[in-house]
Design a protein around this nucleic acid. Sequence first.
RNA 1: AGAGGAGUGGCAGAGUGGUCGAAUGCGGCAGUCUUGAAAACUGUUGUACCGCGAGGUACCGGGGGUUCGAAUCCCUCCUCCUCUGCCA
Length: 424
Amino acid sequence: MLEIAQIRNNKAKIIKGLKKRGVQEAESMIERVLEVDTKRKEIQGKHDNTLAESNQLAKQIGQLMKEGKKDDAEIVKGKTSSLKTESKALGENLSSIENELKQLLYNIPNIPNKDVPEGKSANDNVVIHEYGKTPQLHEGAKPHWDLIKIYDIIDFDLGNKVSGAGFPFYKGKGARLQRAMVNFFLDEAQSAGYNEVQTPILINEESGYGTGQLPDKEGQMYHATEDNLYLIPTAEVPITNMYRDVILDVKNLPVKHVGFTPCFRREAGSWGAHVRGLNRLHQFDKVEIVQVHHPENSYSALKDMCQHVQGLLEKLELQYRVLNLCGGDMGFTSAQTFDMEVYSAAQEKWLEVSSVSNFETYQANRLKLRYRDEDKKTQLLHTLNGSALALPRVLAAILENNQTPEGIKIPEVLVPYTGFEWIN
RNA sequence: AGAGGAGUGGCAGAGUGGUCGAAUGCGGCAGUCUUGAAAACUGUUGUACCGCGAGGUACCGGGGGUUCGAAUCCCUCCUCCUCUGCCA
């Protein structure tokens, strides 16, 4: 979330930023926050004063008791009761206003960075880079939802039976290809200096708030209510939360982690004809990269992360493009996001396979993830993450783009991992 | 899952109702000494909020309670350890 001090000191800039995102009521939102914060300060001041007075009297009583002046102590005790009711009322008042302030802040998204284009929707995203050529498919080429049946490598019906829609089984060479991609992505990240972690895939409420899935995406996560745990929608959540309430030593920066996890998304209300097959699932596999940086370096890190993802796509010989997301299409917590999309020749459309974002201090403020500057003052760090990569749509593109009348050709870089060159 | 024990500052560890934000040791930082380093010695060393400042407030696993006053007593939740049981 945004820092109150930032909002107060850069009000105009913040409002402008929110408008770039399409937040209509930006002014009133910010005014309300400042108003509530001013009230908070006022009440805290009063509360602190009554407590100071009570503490003072309590000390006096202690002193008198020690000296054996019980009667005097009783007299002082009499003075405390009104203070007590007063401070209790102020305390309740304070916590309710603090809560209100927190809720307000939770509902303000991050401010887009200056290079984020204006725009309302996905149509306004800006293509900043394109790579590769559209493959010429043979006569009778098919979309992946047909191919997986022909070669019996992914089974949605079986998934329907055992779990439900959006939970496919991967079978035989399909399963093996999945595992090959995971290992390939992990190895590539390792070579790029990312430290691999295996994380829990259920997280508690605090972690959900830490990275911003809560309260923003409450309904999008699977919730194990018995234990109040959430299934992760992305490895970003457990990995970034490793650093919740941490003050990092500058000499240990940057932090770079990679983790492979299944991801779970309810995708409530986002189903339609355009999301057939592997295009949208409730459970999918993803290799995620996460970095923690000194504020000065976060944008060059963002660039590096994009380069890493693009390198993966190039090695997989996929046609792709990079989008600079516009203000209206960015995620709630992001300051700038680049999406990578691969082209599916059989579906004749672009599929998002990666989203790389810099959250600046937005997550760090919720996480209380900090470093010490030269004056030993604590300052917020910057967090970043990106998919490298999400598997299903990459798989869909590989199946569709590499299909031939003889079968599906496995990209060369994956062959050492699959142990086979063809699915046929 | 049952029984018992425990959670204190970066770490170790004292503190069982009153001046305790918390002894002491280690570690860290600054300085003295030294050509330099080590050792020794001296000082310093948690976080957040309010306040121009002086200063104030909160925090001893989390939350709640008792009390004029809680690290200390009570309730509750969480985590860890030991034993028993169960299990990949």
